[in-house]
Design a protein around this nucleic acid. Structure first.
Length: 666
DNA sequence: TAGGCCAAGATTTTC
DNA sequence: TCTTGGCCTA
């Protein structure tokens, strides 16, 4: 049998064996948490608990895939009826089935931040409010806080309340939901419809939640509705790794769990199996500076390990070179595989330079996160067509494509449509139909003709896209029919390369759709399924194997739950980590930034490299930068400081020596 | 009234 | 560097 108790330490074994009743596992970094969860699943299966009764909730898609993969390894086969998913995907599956109970239809659109922003703008325009970009973003955050109950309703400034009502009303009218809704609405369904709640409770008898410290209050409520009845709820987490408070994560949930499930058993996993002593000592040195934490001491009981390498490259290109050189050397001398290397950064923008260096140095890499392929303008255009076909009431998508490519439908026409839609309480698509049929339409002849052809275009492709396994074919035809290529050329009059590049992306996208549609693992491919997949899990690769053997490049947030032999933490400069904005927002965020740094360090199994540039280009201007204050929290004796490759330009080279001198002098 | 042209400004992290 | 929004022209 796959489950081997001898391979576990006593605490792990207890965690694996405790199947019934509430369980809280406090698992330090690298304490074999994922292993415990997967073994626990294996143990359940061994006890003949049907796969379909087990629900494992994770935080990121990456973690969900990773867990699915590990379970597959242990079980020796893919478990089709086992549910391993993120909270949000799980929310979608509830909502899809029961949307009608809340007055939604099951073809609802899921709005990402871009769409929300567009909707907010639209709502603001209607009530004659001007929004500047920054304000709009902050409003969306406040809406989210109010909506999820993170902040009391009264905290929402009175000036925004009308806007909020407008925004919510529109979402409903468009049959659209935002990410918050994916948690809140399912929770509402469960609490308002006991029959549905019972069905889910008896379907999922055993629930596990990974990264529990990052669960938000609304996610917790959803979990409670699912698990309260049978009490078989296991939560696993580590307060030191709580790094999502900005999105509502609240490790108070541990305390709440203890109150709601008083019969819980607590197990602490404090032995670290992942990292060397050196790496762990560094991480402990850093995290011990946080005041607000549960006291715990991780220990390894093994291998000392090499010192942590710290270097101060002159600029980001030198940083990239250092990283590439080091990787190549390790690959050559120690047979290190590229896939065992991970380069971590605080922000997505920092990946840009690294990517360029990887490309020029021929180091294969894969990027996770960052601006998704599906967020690109040209791809959004096409997906908006699909969305509109799937859900014609989706005004945000309609507005995006109604004049893309240009078909003579301008601002005035749209204003008229908006008025019609408002007075008839319908969507824009409904308004178009109404105007086309109305005898007394205020629209001119030409506008009506243009609208008529747009309307019939959507109607035609609506049926074509939904024809079984004909989505790719229909989309290719659509791209031809709207002559998207000509549109791209027209959009870039002074640039020949841009349209080619973008059209190539559209081609890649269509190939992706085709792969998706042909994939035998997708039991019922449909446009709706497809749209859900790309909104919730925006990977642009279908097969993971394609990426095996490449250096991993990602943000620290995305790396949570992962581990690699060799880890580089790049851009460890003041203002980057801790991030300036985070500190400005609230100085108390310093602790979360420190946890983030802690998470970064603890990803490393054998070797850890830290780079901190002396200068960095920020929006085209070169700025001096200081090392991150967190570097000083790592005990000196664990660190070995080395020289980075010299910067390319001579002048900068001189500065570099001056800087070294200054450092030696100071 | 539509669309071209130009200037400004930009997301910290993810579902 | 790229995208978005505003202004002006035909």
């Amino acid at each position: 049998m796959p489950f081997d108790p001898a391979a576990l330490n006593p605490e792990q074994r207890q965690a694996v064996e405790t199947i019934d009743g509430p369980l809280q596992i406090i698992a330090g970094a690298g304490s074999g948490k994922t292993r415990v969860i997967t073994m626990r699943i294996a143990r359940m299966l061994e006890r003949r608990i049907p796969q379909s009764q087990i629900l494992a909730l994770t935080f990121t898609n990456k973690a969900a895939r990773e867990m699915g993969e590990r379970v597959r390894e242990i079980a020796g086969t893919r478990l089709r009826d086992l549910t391993v998913s993120t909270f949000h995907s799980f929310g979608v599956s509830i909502l899809k089935r029961h949307a009608r109970r809340l007055g939604y239809r099951d073809n609802f659109s899921i709005y990402d931040t871009q769409d929300q922003m567009a909707l907010l703008r639209e709502s603001a325009r209607e009530i004659k409010m001007e929004l500047e970009h920054g304000e709009a973003m902050s409003i969306l955050q406040q809406f989210s806080a109010a909506k999820t109950g993170r902040a009391p309703w009264e905290d929402l400034p009175a000036a925004y309340r009308e806007l909020y009502d407008d925004y919510s009303e529109h979402l409903r009218l468009y049959n659209a939901v935002d990410f918050d809704d994916l948690i809140i609405l399912p929770e509402r369904i469960l609490s308002e419809h006991p029959d549905v709640a019972e069905a889910f409770q008896s379907r999922f008898q055993y629930i596990m939640v990974d990264e529990f410290q990052d669960t938000s209050a609304d996610q917790y409520r959803l979990l409670r509705s699912l698990g309260m009845a049978h009490q078989n709820v296991a939560v696993v987490g580590d307060d030191d790794q709580s790094i999502y408070s900005w999105r509502g994560a609240n490790y108070e949930n541990f305390a709440q769990f203890e109150r709601d499930f008083p019969d819980f058993v607590e197990i602490r996993l404090e032995r670290n199996y992942r990292s060397t002593d050196t790496i762990l000592a560094a991480a402990n040195g850093v995290i011990s500076n946080n005041q607000n934490r549960k006291d715990k001491v991780l220990w390894t009981g093994t291998k000392e390990g090499r010192p942590i390498v710290l270097t101060f490259p002159e600029d980001e290109s030198s940083e990239g070179m250092f990283i590439c050189d080091t990787i190549k050397t390790l690959a050559l001398r120690e047979n290190l595989r590229y896939g065992d290397v991970c380069v971590l950064v605080r922000t997505n923008s920092l990946t840009r330079n690294l990517e360029m260096t990887f490309l020029s140095e021929n180091v294969p890499y894969r990027m996770s996160g960052g601006q998704s392929f599906f967020q690109r303008k040209e791809i959004k255009d096409i997906t908006s067509y699909i969305r509109l076909c799937a859900n014609p009431d989706d005004d945000v998508s309609l507005l995006r494509v109604i004049n893309t490519p240009r078909r003579g439908i301008g601002r005035k026409t749209i204003e008229t449509l908006v008025e019609t839609a408002q007075s008839q309480a319908t969507s824009l698509f409904g308004a178009i139909a109404a105007e086309l049929h109305a005898a007394d339409s205020r629209l001119g002849k030409r506008a009506r003709a243009d609208l008529a052809s747009f309307h019939s275009l959507v109607e035609e492709y609506r049926s074509r896209i939904f024809a079984k396994r004909k989505m790719t074919e229909a989309l290719r035809a659509l791209v031809e029919e709207i002559d998207y290529w000509a549109h791209l050329v027209a959009e870039h009059p002074n640039n020949e390369k841009a349209p080619k590049w973008k059209y190539r992306n559209v081609g890649l996208f269509l190939d992706f759709v085709e792969q998706y549609e042909k994939d035998p693992d997708n039991l019922s491919p449909s446009p709706f399924e497809f749209l859900t997949r790309i909104s919730l899990d925006p990977r642009d690769e279908v097969d993971e194997e394609h990426d095996a053997g490449k250096v991993n490049l990602m943000t620290i947030h995305a790396a949570k739950g992962l581990e690699h032999d060799v880890v580089f933490v790049a851009g460890c400069e003041a203002g980057i980590i801790p991030h300036q904005r985070a500190i400005e927002e609230d100085p108390a965020n310093l602790e979360e930034e420190r946890r983030l740094f802690y998470v970064a360090l603890t990803r490393a199994k054998r070797r850890l490299y830290i780079t901190s540039c002396r200068t960095r280009k920020v929006m085209r201007e070169l700025r001096e930068s200081a090392p991150s204050p967190f570097l000083e929290e790592i005990p000196d004796e664990l660190i070995e400081t080395v020289d980075a490759p010299e910067a390319v330009e001579e002048e900068e080279g001189l500065d570099y020596f001056a800087a070294i001198k200054a450092k030696l002098g100071g």
